[in-house]
Structures are given as structure tokens and as C-alpha cells.
Design a protein around this nucleic acid. Structure first.
Lengths: 187, 187, 187, 187
DNA sequence: TATGAATGAGGGTTCATTCAT
DNA sequence: TATGAATGAACCCTCATTCAT
């Protein structure tokens, strides 16, 4: 692994373990096993590291969200695929997921970065799926961004409860969540 | 207003404006118009201030959640009341709401504090409402904490989108959200 | 002595002993016997300290230059007074003198500071003395600033040689220098 | 041009532009277009570069000072030649001149280097010229080093005023300066 | 109780120097 | 010889905390 990746991985770990506000350079150096000056060959300050980590996490998530997505499957199947992918990503990569979730609405992340396009533009896929469902009279008429936020928010919230071990997430629960989010937006 | 309250209000403002990681004592002093030593008459360090602000915000929210709650109304009415109260609190007090939401699952807040009882124990009210609905066969059988997190998460997520002005929240949207969250947990 | 004065005195000493380029904050703190943060109660960065020291040294010199100056004395007497005062200042306060001399033409000092008015505006006194002498046909016609620089430069140069102990400066030498600088600008 | 010369030229430029205290290796590397390690093939640290630049500038100046010097010309002619050469050097090579002038009396330059013999030993030429003039009763009796410093100082000072554009230096001014410096040391 | 000058540990960052290529 | 990524000591500066007033 390259030094740059070492630094980013260490930063993500630290944010997850202690929170952004207590991430210091010396902690990053120690965790990444690099000299203190090395970081400045790759980043010009701390904010740049955090932004880079955020960007990478978003790219990583963007990839996952469309895994196994079949554009010709039924509306319901496609919906379930997207929601399951998001949930699975959160289960597999809690550090990335929490970091994205926490900082997407924080003043630390620049608005440009917050609104960056995901890889393969997964947001557009979801939004057009919603619009398609509304045209077919399956999904309730409402602001598509509101609808998107709604189903997205269910997954986020469920994952956060899971992370603090409020409940397990096995096959049963996962099915319940997917159904719940589907039902919430039906007419 | 007392000095202590000045300090807490300034802290909450700063967290909202710049994020916890960039809140410093000198910023708090300036915003609260107190001398730098004054704080130590009330708090022994920064974490204590943040915890106190968190606690107060939770108390404040706890009050709101049960406003106008009628234990003898129908299940649906009671559900809507609780959800609407949460949504309204978020609309009226964005700083408090966001602070609670961001730090409830952050390592900065101690687990004891995270699990503190709300004023009037609003959490218990919601959980028992869920259990009651499940017994009556209205609400789908699932882990009650999962169910709680689900309907709670919808409100949180919707509010965050509203804060960054993804969409407006007027009467129409609010009704859609309440319905969506209700439908999501029906059998 | 106040902390601020301690810091400025230590800075001047260090500049004299090691040169500006090797003056560091930690050296200043140690020499001035103050905590490392104390400086920021008085100055916002290192350049500000150096500028303040420069300004103070200029003020100090400005005072000396006009000591015992009698505006009604003869042209020659007035000239000798000014030149002697400059020379005496350099002998009594080598640190101030050298610092002013070295940095008056260095990029480190801002042009505004370099062109600051001395206390009592000693520069104007000298320039008008030159012009007066030229009108009377005693001093040779030439650009008054050139003439000023000429007599000023003799003193500076002589002092620098004295500082590195090229020669002593007692009564005999001093009289030779005053005469030399006077003769250099006669018609 | 060789890499070594590139490095020295870049160093001199930077000293002139920003002052010694802000010359860093990375600035030298960039300006000289060499890799950061290359310097260590020629110099073992920064002081060595500065000393080398100083030495070279002194050599360069030493050459100029005796240009067109005729040992059989009259005392006055020889004096004027030496003074004019110094002045001309300063006009043609301001960077070298200022660097020499600033650092000749600074703690940064070692005393051995400060007292180095110029090429062709121009200092001895001037000193013996002074002694000769004193023996002939033309030049005033005084310490020969003091006298040397006096006429040298006039040129230095005049040049510094010229560099900051206090006045022009054309034929008229130059003649005035040569005369002034000559008159200053006559009996 | 309220203050703010003083503090120094530790923050982010720079920079001379090394060394594998 | 020439390079530049890597290094860590030392830099400037911030900031939570203390204490005399």
C-alpha cells in the first residue's frame, strides 16, 4: 500500500474511533507509520486529507450501490436491490458509512463535495426510479428528493442503531427493513 | 440570562455554525461575552460543557415530544402526535436537533449520556405504543427498538434534507411524511 | 520592566548577536524569560516584533539626534551637533544603530516603516540645514538627499569599522570624522 | 552554466529579493531548477552556500576595483579610479554589492571570510595610496583604516540611497561624489 | 463571582538533510 | 552525478487552563 493510502486509512480509522474533532496529525503519523513531514507530499493541510477520505468513501459507496443492479428488473426488484446495497454497504463498511453520514451535513465538508456525483451517478438512478414509480401510480406523488431522503434515511437510521448494538441485523430484520421502506412510499 | 446559560448558548451556536471540531474556548468566551476564567466556575473542561449542552438539548426535546399527547386517543392519533412533535421540534430548533442527532452516535458523547432518560421518558411512551400496536395486530411484528429507530430515522433524515434546502416542509409534505412513517410499520 | 519590553529587548539582543535570520521564538522566550504564548498577547507574529523593535530604535535615535541642537547656532555648529549626535548614538547604542542601519534597506522592513518620520522629524532638520547652507554658498550645490546620504553614510561606515575594532574612536578620531564630513560637502 | 553556478546564482537572487532570513533550500532548488539532493554534491549545508556566494562576490568586486588602475598616474587620478570603480561596481551589480555590504559586518559571515584578501589585494592598494598621500602632505594624518573606511563608506551609503531611488546617479552626481570623498580626506 | 494576563503542552507545518533509485 | 520521496527536529502558533487581582 502506498504512503498516501496509509495516511487516508489511518485518518478514517481515527475519525471512527475518536471523532473528527480529536483527530490530530501526530495520531495520524503514528497510526500510518509515516514521518510527520510525509503527509505534505500528498496533502497540503488537514482539511484536504479529510476531504480526500470523504471523496474516496463516497466513490466506494457509489460503486456498491449499483452492484447487481438490473435496469430491466421490476420496479420493486430494482428498489430492493438499491436499498439492500446501501444497507449491505453500511454493514460491511461501517467506518465509511458513518463518516459519510455524519459529515455530509456538517460544515466541515464543502458544499461542492457534499453534492459531488457518486460513481455511476447512483443518485440519478434512484431519483429516476422514484419518478418512474410515480408515473406508474405505484409510488405516492411527492417531491422526489423528499422521497429519496425518506428511504435513504430509513437505512441510515437503522444502521446507526445496529452500530450501537440496539438490535442485530440478520436476514429477518433486513427483509423487514426493505419492506418497511417500500411500503412507506407506496400510494 | 445567567453567565452559565450564556456560555451554553454560545457553545451550541458555535457547534452549529462551525462544527464541534472548530469550537474553541476563546470563541466561546467572545461569543458569550465572559472572561476566560469565568467558565471554570461552572465547568471543569470543554467536554463538560458539551455534555451539559447535550443534556439540556435532550431535556428540551423530551418536553416537546409529549406536547399535547393524549394517552387516551387512538393508536394512530398518538403515533401522529409523537412524530409530528419530533418533526416540529426539528423545524423550530434546528441547532438543538442537529446537535443531538450528530452526537448521539459519536464517540464524543458518553454512552450513559446517550442512553439518558428523556424528560417524562418519551422513549418509553413510544416503545410501549409500538408494542401495543403489535399486540393489536396493527403494527408489524419486529424488534421494537428496530421499529422505533425506523420511524425516528425517517424524521431525522427528512429534517437534514430540509436544513440543506433540498425541499420545503409545509403542510402537504408534513402529512406525507407522517403517513409514510405510519405505513412503513403497518402489517 | 513589562513583559512587552522584555520581549523587545531580548529580540534586539538576539538580532545583534546572531543576526535576524537566526532569531527564533524559542530563543526569544528563553532570553526574555516569558512563556511561549505570552508573546501573542502583545504581537501577532514574529514580523510584528521586529517591526516594533525597529520602530522603537528609530524613535530612540530620533530623540538623540536633536539633543542639544540650537537652531540659532552657526551653520557649522549645527552641522557638527547633528553629526556628533549620530556618532554618539552609534557608540552608546551599537545594537540599535546596527539594527537600524542593516534593516533600513532590507526587504524585511516595510517601506512605510523605513520612511517613517523620526521623532521631532530630525530628517527634515538636516535637509533644511543643507538647503540653507547651499543658499548661503557654503555647501556645494547637489541633490539634498544625496548630500544627506553622503554625510549620514560617513558616520555609518565609520561606526561599523569601529564595531569590528578596526580602530578606536576617541576625541581625536571623532574630530577628524566631523571635519571630514563637513569638508566633503563644502563648495 | 554548471549546476553549482545555478545554485549560487539562485541563492544570490533570493537573498536580494527576500533577505537572507527567508532563503530556504526549497526556494533555491526551485529557482535553480535542480533536485533537492543535488546541492549536497557541492555544499554540505546552507552556510557553506552563503559563504561561497560571498566569496565569489568579493572576488568579482576585487577584479572590478582595480580595472584600469594605473600605478603611475597621479595620486588624485588613482584615488578617483578606485572610487569610481567601486561606485560603478555597485551600479552594475547591485545584488553582489548589497550582499557584500550587508553581510560583511554580520555575525553570519565568519571573521576569516570578512578579512579575506580581495583578488589582487585591492585593499592593500588603497591603504598604501592613503599612506603615500599622507607622506606627501596631501591627505590628512589619521588612522589609515579609518580613512579607508571613510571613503569606502561614502560610496556604500550613496549606493544604498540610489537603490531605493532616493536620487538618480548620472555623470553629474558621480563627479560630485568623487569630489566629496576626495575633499573629505584632504588636509 | 468575574476577570484576563500568563503559561506551556501540543497543535499543524516547514525545512534541511538522507538515501534508494 | 542527479534526483525527489521520506524523514523528524524544530519551527511558529493555538489553546485549554491557572492564578493573582
Amino acid at each position: 500500500m502506498s504512503k498516501k493510502q496509509d495516511i487516508m486509512a489511518a485518518t478514517l480509522d481515527l475519525i471512527h474511533e475518536e471523532g473528527l474533532q480529536s483527530v490530530t496529525f501526530s495520531k495520524i503519523f503514528k497510526k500510518a507509520n509515516v514521518g510527520s513531514g510525509t503527509i505534505y507530499n500528498y496533502f497540503s493541510n488537514k482539511e484536504e486529507i479529510v476531504n480526500a477520505v470523504y471523496k474516496e468513501a463516497r466513490m466506494h459507496m457509489g460503486e456498491h450501490l449499483l452492484q447487481g443492479y438490473d435496469p430491466f428488473a421490476s420496479l420493486y426488484e430494482r428498489f430492493k436491490c438499491l436499498q439492500l446495497n446501501r444497507l449491505t454497504f453500511g454493514i460491511l463498511y461501517p467506518k465509511e458509512f458513518l463518516f459519510i453520514d455524519n459529515f455530509s451535513f456538517s460544515p466541515y465538508i464543502s458544499p461542492e463535495l457534499r453534492n459531488m456525483d457518486d460513481l455511476h451517478n447512483s443518485r440519478e438512478v434512484i431519483l429516476s426510479l422514484i419518478v418512474e414509480g410515480q408515473k406508474q401510480g405505484i409510488i405516492k406523488e411527492m417531491d422526489s428528493h423528499l422521497c429519496h431522503q425518506l428511504i435513504h434515511g430509513i437505512i441510515s437510521s437503522i444502521l446507526k442503531g445496529y452500530y450501537v448494538e440496539k438490535y442485530p441485523l440478520n436476514e429477518t430484520q433486513i427483509q423487514q427493513i426493505l419492506e418497511a421502506s417500500w411500503k412507506s412510499i407506496l400510494v
